[in-house]
Amino acid sequence: MSETPETARAVVVYESMFGSTRLIAEAIADGLRESADVRVLPVREAPESFPDCDLIVLGAPTHVHGMSRPATRAEAGRWADDPHRALTLESGAEGIGVREWLETCGDLPHLYAAFDTRADMTELVTGSAAAILDRRLRKTGARKLADRASFLVDKQNALVGGEIARARDWGRAVGEALLSQAEVRS
Rank of each mutant, 00 (worst) to 15 (best):
A76F: 00
G77Q: 08
H84L: 11
G77F: 02
R78V: 11
H65F: 13
E75M: 13
P83G: 09
R69A: 11
L89C: 10
A60I: 03
L58I: 10
H84D: 15
H84T: 14
R73Q: 12
G66F: 04
A80L: 06
R69N: 08
P61V: 03
A74L: 09
G77S: 08
G59F: 01
S91W: 01
H65I: 04
R73S: 05
P61L: 03
G92N: 07
M67C: 07
T72E: 09
G92P: 06
D82H: 04
S91N: 08
E75W: 12
A60S: 15
P61Q: 07
R69M: 12
G66Q: 10
E90M: 13
A74G: 05
T72G: 07
G59E: 03
A60D: 04
G66T: 13
R73C: 04
H65P: 01
L58R: 00
G59Q: 03
L89E: 05
R85M: 14
G77P: 07
R85Q: 15
A76E: 02
A86K: 13
G77M: 04
G92W: 02
V64D: 11
S68Y: 00
A80K: 01
A60P: 05
P61H: 04
H65A: 10
G77L: 07
R85E: 14
P83Q: 10
V64W: 06
P83C: 11
H63R: 11
H63S: 06
V64H: 09
G66I: 06
P61G: 06
A60K: 00
L89D: 10
T72S: 15
L87W: 04
W79T: 02
A71I: 14
G92T: 08
L58M: 07
V64Q: 11
P83L: 10
E75D: 15
A74S: 11
A86T: 09
H65D: 09
A76K: 01
A71Q: 15
G66C: 09
A60E: 07
S91R: 14
R85K: 15
R73E: 05
A86M: 11
W79A: 09
P83M: 11
R69I: 10
A60H: 00
G66K: 03
S91D: 15
H63W: 04
M67P: 01
E75P: 03
R78D: 15
T72H: 04
A86R: 12
D81A: 15
A71M: 11
G92I: 03
A71S: 15
P70I: 13
W79H: 08
R85T: 12
E90G: 02
L89T: 07
D81V: 06
H65Q: 12
A86F: 06
W79G: 02
S91G: 10
M67W: 00
G59S: 05
M67I: 12
E90Y: 00
